[in-house]
């Protein structure tokens, strides 16, 4: 490695975020390099989705301290769409239904008018979109359909940093495999490891998705901060046997507290 290291893809420094009157995040530090896949664990209501929503720039998630730097650009003041065009993409846990806007149109938007019939056919094949393509997006979609639709949109967008909010929640095993396969191809592509560039941040409760996607690092969001970091599978194992309270104290992790 050269001594003059390139700036990381994403650098979050001492991030404090409030929603309404409540302080949800209280000093999150996180660095994601190109090509890395990170996992975000933590108790319900701990602020995992808040972190993702703050990165994409959803209004209402107020940064009160600290900063988020993506590709060397401070994201403060950038609109959601500007961040998206800079290379940040997200698969929502529960995306909203939009009456009158079809999934096909969402794919066109995400692909920035570079959507070829071949790409649509490929997405249809990998994610079995079928009749969903011409339905109003998320309108009456089943759990699995909504996740596949989110993945299709991310694959059309091909962001440099993909954020996944509980990609396996409310989804049966068959669909997890399909969604996981899509995540894998987005994050790892066909490229050789040395050339991997796209990065991911995955929120998961169960860790099932990690049977399909290789993650490099896991973090536990606890009390508004990333309390510890370690091998994602080890962390999940530890949490499932001892709970979050014990996990953040355990020796497996490199703690920051």
């Amino acid at each position: 490695m050269s001594s003059e290291q390139a700036a990381p893809l994403l650098r979050i420094e001492d991030l404090h975020v409030s929603v309404g009157e409540r302080d949800i995040l209280r000093g999150v530090d996180l660095t994601i390099e190109e090509g890395e896949t990170h996992v975000l664990l933590g108790p319900n209501g701990g602020g995992k989705s808040t972190l993702l929503n703050t990165i994409v720039g959803i209004p209402g998630y107020r940064v009160t301290q600290g900063r988020i730097v993506f590709k060397g650009v401070d994201l403060a003041g950038l609109e959601i769409d500007e961040r998206a065009r800079l290379g940040i993409g997200i698969a929502f846990q529960r995306p909203p239904a939009v009456r009158g806007v079809r999934l096909r149109q969402m794919l066109e938007v995400a692909a920035r008018s570079e959507l070829t019939p071949d790409t649509v056919a490929d997405l249809d094949e990998t994610l079995s979109l079928g009749h969903m393509l011409d339905r109003d997006v998320n309108m009456g979609f089943s759990g699995g359909e909504a996740k596949r639709s989110e993945m299709a949109q991310l694959l059309a967008q091909m962001p440099d940093l993909a954020l996944f909010d509980e990609p396996e929640s409310g989804v049966d095993l068959d669909n997890i495999a399909v969604v996981g396969g899509a995540m894998n191809s987005l994050l790892k592509g066909e490229e050789r490891i040395s050339e991997r560039r796209r990065a991911g941040l995955i929120i998961t409760h169960t860790g099932h998705i990690l049977e399909f996607v290789n993650a490099d690092v896991g973090h536990v969001l606890y009390n508004g901060r990333l309390a510890c970091k370690g091998n994602p599978l080890d962390l999940i194992e530890e949490i499932s046997s001892h709970g979050y309270d014990k996990c953040v104290e355990c020796a497996l992790c490199q703690t920051f507290a």
Partner: peptide, 25 residues
């Protein structure tokens, strides 16, 4: 608002997102 934000996360500017949703409506 969340529908507008949703379209924006795919890279669409706010005014275009509003127009697309209105047309859909």
């Amino acid at each position: 608002a969340e529908e507008i934000y949703y379209l924006m996360t795919r890279g669409l500017p706010k005014d275009e997102a509003v127009s697309m949703i209105t047309r859909g409506f």
